[in-house]
Amino acid sequence: MTSQVAADGIERAASEWIERRDFGAWSEADAKELESWLGQSLEHRVAFLRLDFEWKRTERLAALRPLKPPSNEAPAGKWRRTLRIAAAVAILGVVGSLGASYFLTQNGKSYSTPLGGRKVLTFADGSQIELNTNTVIRIAMDEHKRSAVLESGEAYFSIKHDASRPFVVTAANHKVIDLGTKFLMRTSGNKLEVALVEGSAKVEPSDAREARHAVTLKPGDIAYALPGSMSVVRKTPADIGSDLGWRRGVLVFRHATLADAAEEFNRYNAQKIIIADPETARLTFSATLPTHETHTFVRILSKLFNTHSETTTEGIVISR
C-alpha cells in the first residue's frame, strides 16, 4: 500500500538525528531512542539510511581541510625564525658534505614514454614499474634507498617490500610510501591520483606541516590529492580493473560519458577527438576498446547515438 506520510517531515527528523549523533553529546540512551524511532516505520528507516549513507560518503572528504597559512607564530615568532636560520645553515652543511650522493638520489635515472607508448621497467630486487602513455619518471635505487619521482603521466607499481629500504614515490607535492604493494599512480599538473590494488601504502603531503593530511590506503581505495586537500574514495575491484586496462592495451569504459572517453583516447593518440557540444558530451556508454583505435570509437558512437564525425585540422569533431 502506498503510504501517505509526508516525506519532507521524515527527512527533517532523520537529519536531526544525524546532527545529534555526530555533533551533540551522544549517549547510549540517545542511541536507544534512535533505534526505536527507526523501528517505528520503514519510512523512517529508508529516510535515515538515505541521508546517512550519503552523509558518510562525505566523511572521508573531511580532508577537504583548507591549508592553514603557517602563521600563529606571534609569541614564539622570533625564536622560530632563529631556529629556521639555524636549520638552513645545518642543511647547507649536510648538502656540502654529502653533496654527491644527495644529488644522485635527487636525480636518479630518467625514463619516459612517448604519446601512445608503454614500457615495463624491471629492477634487481624484482620490483616492476610499468609506464603508461606520455609519462616521465625518475628512479633512484641503491642499497640504502629506493625512490622515484613521477613527473607526469601514469605508472603501475608492483613493489617487492623491503622494510630496510621503503619505496617512496613523489608526485605533485605528495609522497606515496609503499608498505609492500601494487598501486597505480597518475599525475598531471598539481593533481595526483593513487589507486591501491594490493597491500597497503601511505600517501602524505611532502610538506611535513601538512602531515595530518596523510592517509593509509587499503586495497580498493583511491586517493585524490590536490594542493591542500586529499580525499579517499572506494572502488570495486571491477572498477580498479578497468583503470588498469591500459596494461593490456585497452580502455575499459563503464557508463563513461563521451567527454571522459574522448579525454582518455586523447591521452594515447595524436589525432584528437573533440566532442562538439555539452549535450553530446554527457551521453554515456560502456565498451572495451584498444587504446589506439580512435576510429573504432568514432564508428561505435555513430552506431549508438547517430553522431556525425568530421575530420578537421584540430581533430575528429563529434556532433549529433
Binding site: 577537504l64 585524490y224 563503464r254
Partner: peptide, 17 residues
C-alpha cells in the same frame, strides 16, 4: 546505462565542494 554515481569517483571532491 545512466551515469552511475559510484562511477564518478574522479569528480567526487569537486562534487562535494
Amino acid at each position: 546505462p545512466a551515469p552511475d554515481r559510484t562511477l564518478m569517483a574522479r569528480d567526487e571532491l569537486r562534487r562535494v565542494q
